[in-house]
Amino acid sequence: MEYTDVVMENFTCPKHVGEVEGANGIGQVGSPACGDIMKIFLKINDDDIIEDASFKTFGCGAAVASSSMATDMIIGKSIEEAAKLTNSDVVDALGGLPDVKIHCSVLAAEAIQAAIEDYKKNKKK
């Protein structure tokens, strides 16, 4: 099994690690496959644009790289656009993932969707 250079880069120097200050959408999902956990923090402005995003991940190299890449991809996007981000988009951006590691990218897409749902719920209140 081998990771691409992009994966390794995103693992070694992940972008957007931690908890964004003033996050108003937080999503956490666990992988049923391996039991790993990913948490995404979004700071969304009044126009529903994602101003900043960050993550915390308990998982493998692919999971860390996927979170780094996915958060990077959605910053500046509207929540509608961000919600459409699929795991294949993340895999493509990473230059591919080994077959057994595809589910790690699914975590990233799902965590973002969960964070957006959380934001919408908070907004209604």
Binding site: V17, I37, M38, K56, T57, V64
Partner: peptide
């Protein structure tokens, strides 16, 4: 530091 779980927030 990168992990979402810790003593206060144990694994689900």
């Amino acid at each position: 530091k990168m992990s979402p779980i810790n003593a206060e927030c144990p694994i689900d």
